[in-house]
Amino acid sequence: MLINPSRKAPHLTVTASRPHALFSFGTLRDERVQTALFGRPVPTSAASLRGYTTRPLPITDPSVIATSGLDVHLTLERAYGAVVEGAVLRLTDQDLAAADAYEVDDYTRRRVLLSSGESAWAYLDAKPLRPAARIVIVGDSIAYGRCDPRGGWAARLAASHIAANEADHRVFNLAIPGSTLAEAGEQTPALLGPRLPDTLLVAAGVNDSAVPLSPAQSARPAHDGLARVADSLDSLAATALAHNARLVVMGPVWLDEERTGDYAGLRFTEARALELRESVRTWCLRNHIDYVDMWEPLHGKSDLLVDGLHPAGEGHEALYQHLSAVCR
């Protein structure tokens, strides 16, 4: 499941006393549309967005067609070196809510970095990997593909993504076995620059839910993952935005704690993994970040796990099929 925070639980991440900056490249620039939605034309200034191009999107919602007068709108797609010209609208909380209601379910509101360096909202494709070109993956041993000679779900994603456009599509899997979100947050900034990512895919693995078995390990910052989830994701979000990359966060996969036992000095439990799942989901909902729930594809299917923790090849195939269905 892919949660769309803009639709399910609107939350404004800036104070009500400051206008919201919304980048528009389509019908929202039309004063007639603004008057219909906001009751007046709103303050607007020219702006541009690098790293994107546009493609047509057919519209079937009669109310949206009636307001805009068009049955084909534009949607953004990633393209290195391209620029989309548009405008920044200065909106109130009420205006922003009206804009959310106007946009069809094919769009979702996310943060982008304008050519001027200003951060603004923009309506992007609701399926976060569909418009992507250059994807960087960070995560743990499951994202790395351990226990699967084919390289796990990430290798399957890379193969299909690159096959769709070998000239422009790239996937860089930077997952490190044993990593937590905190470690990914510390290591990722130095890795992104030369890869020119437009999408940062973070696999929130079970290491953040692990319980250390010794006092010495308990003192390690890397193993207080549940307490640091929000801080770690804040760091990753800031890194992604600095590169104008869309952040997509994958929740943990199901584990069979009866088979995991004690693993490398750590204990993994379903209850702690569920707590991590909810913490990540809540953070994404609050911050308008794409969250992909990866729990259900393996839930109760212990035969798809090698050791109760790491998926076998069939398990990775199930994860890949689920990711593709909800994100592409």
Rank of each mutant, 00 (worst) to 15 (best):
S6L: 05
K8M: 13
P19R: 10
A21K: 14
R32C: 06
Q34V: 12
R40D: 12
V42D: 05
S45I: 12
A47F: 10
Y52K: 03
A66T: 13
A66V: 09
T67Y: 03
G69D: 07
Y80I: 05
V83N: 08
A87P: 01
L89N: 02
R90P: 02
D100S: 05
A101D: 14
Y107H: 04
R110W: 05
E118D: 15
E118Q: 15
Y123H: 13
L124N: 06
A132T: 04
R134P: 07
R134V: 10
I135A: 08
I137E: 03
S141W: 05
S141V: 11
S141R: 07
Y144I: 02
G151E: 07
G152C: 07
W153I: 12
A163Y: 06
H169I: 08
R170P: 00
N173R: 04
G178I: 08
G178W: 02
G178V: 10
A184V: 12
G185A: 15
P189E: 04
L191Y: 05
P197Y: 09
L201K: 04
A203P: 00
V211P: 01
S214A: 15
A219E: 15
R220E: 15
A222L: 12
V229E: 01
V229Q: 03
A230I: 01
S232F: 11
L233E: 07
D234R: 14
S235H: 09
A238N: 11
R246E: 08
M250T: 09
M250R: 03
Y263C: 07
Y263M: 09
L266V: 10
L276R: 00
E278C: 04
V280M: 05
Y291P: 00
V292W: 01
V306L: 11
P311F: 01
G313W: 05
G313A: 15
S324A: 12
